[in-house]
């Protein structure tokens, strides 16, 4: 089992697989609305000129998240070759 990291720590170009969401409030509902559930693949696309927020590819949509929000999403890093 690969170790859990925060979504925000991945670099542009890398992909993570969602394991769990570490928050219970409204933010979690927002994440769920976007289709962020366990086993969802999330690719980091690029960051803003100030390094933050970052843009993520989530279920075909490009979504920007701030660092502290992305922190709540725990993922495992996916090897590049597995991404089709």
């Amino acid at each position: 089992m690969e170790k859990l990291i925060s979504l925000g720590t991945l670099n542009p170009g890398e992909t993570g697989i969602v394991v769990k969401i570490n928050t219970t409030d409204k933010l979690k509902r927002r994440f769920l609305d976007l289709g962020i559930v366990p086993n969802t693949k999330i690719k980091i696309l690029y960051e803003s000129p100030f390094k933050e927020p970052k843009a993520y590819l989530i279920r075909g949509a490009v979504i920007a998240l701030r660092e502290e929000d992305a922190e709540m999403i725990k993922v495992t890093r996916m090897e590049e070759s597995l991404w089709d």
Partner: peptide, 8 residues
């Protein structure tokens, strides 16, 4: 929280 969609 800041969630912003960047549409095509």
């Amino acid at each position: 929280s800041f969630i912003l969609e960047l549409p095509p």
